[in-house]
Write a protein that binds this DNA or RNA. Structure first.
Lengths: 124, 124
DNA sequence: CAGTATCCCTGGTGATACTG
DNA sequence: CAGTATCACCAGGGATACTG
C-alpha cells in the first residue's frame, strides 16, 4: 500500500471496533462488499446494482477497499477492457460482520426509515 | 425524533448493512457504544476514556446515538449536575455487531496500523 | 459537572465532461 | 468498458473559549 490512509487511532478498548468500521465505512463500501459476497463482478455490473453511485465514487471506494486488502482487482488486457472485482480471503472473512450488520438492520430498522425507539422508562 | 438524520438509502440488498453502519459510524460512536457495554457512565467519565474527543464532539455523538434510540440520557436535577448515559435495549442489542467488529479487528488488523494483505495470487 | 458557542478548515461526495 | 479530470459544495469535525 502507498499510505496508511487511516490516520491514527487512539487505541483504547474499542479501538478494534473503530478500526474495522473505518474499513467498511464510506457510504458505498458496505453495499459493495455485500454484493461481492455473491461473487465476482465487473465495474459496470456493480455500478448497475448501486443506483446513485457515480463512476468516480465507485472507483474511489473500490480502490480503497483494494488498498485495504479486502477486494481483488483483476484487469484483463483485452479489448474491450474487462476488470473484475472479487473479495479477497480477508474480504470474505468480513462476511460474519456484514451479516451481523445486515441482520441487525433488518430487525431494528423496520425498513430504513428508522422508526427508532420504543419509549424509554421514566425515572429520576 | 426531530429529523430523520439519515437522508435516504437506496435500498438494494445491502441496504440494511448501510443503514446499520450509519448508526454506529461517526468517529466516536463505536468507542462510545463499546464503553457503554460496560455499564452506565457519566459525561466526563466517558470523556476520560476517550482521549482526543472534545466536549463538543462527545455531546454531538451522544445526542445522535440518543436520537437513534441506542442510548439513554438520564439527567438528574442536582447540583452539581449529573448526567448518566447508558445503552437502551436497542443499543444493547448491538452487542453482537460490536463484538463482530471488534473480533474481526483484533484478528485482522494486527493492532491498528493496518498491515494489510498477504500478496494475492497471479492470474490473467 | 456537563455541556454551548464560534470560528474555521479539511476531505468526502456530487455533477459533469472527457479518454485509453 | 472502465475508468480520469475538474470544479465545487458543504457537512463533519477540530480548537478554543464561555456558561447554567
Amino acid at each position: 500500500m502507498a499510505k496508511p490512509r487511516h490516520s491514527r487511532l487512539d487505541c483504547n478498548p474499542g479501538c478494534a471496533v473503530e478500526a474495522t468500521l473505518r474499513l467498511i465505512d464510506g457510504k458505498w463500501k458496505g453495499v459493495i462488499l455485500f454484493h461481492l459476497l455473491d461473487g465476482t463482478a465487473r465495474f459496470n455490473a456493480i455500478r448497475r446494482r448501486i443506483p446513485g453511485v457515480t463512476p468516480r465514487m465507485l472507483t474511489n471506494q473500490l480502490r480503497e477497499l483494494e488498498q485495504d486488502g479486502l477486494i481483488l482487482r483483476q484487469v484483463y488486457a483485452e479489448v474491450p477492457p474487462r476488470v473484475e472485482y472479487s473479495l479477497t480471503e480477508r474480504g470474505r472473512s468480513l462476511a460474519p460482520v456484514l451479516e451481523a450488520l445486515r441482520s441487525w438492520g433488518d430487525a431494528n430498522l423496520a425498513l430504513f426509515g428508522a422508526a427508532p425507539p420504543p419509549p424509554a422508562v421514566a425515572a429520576a
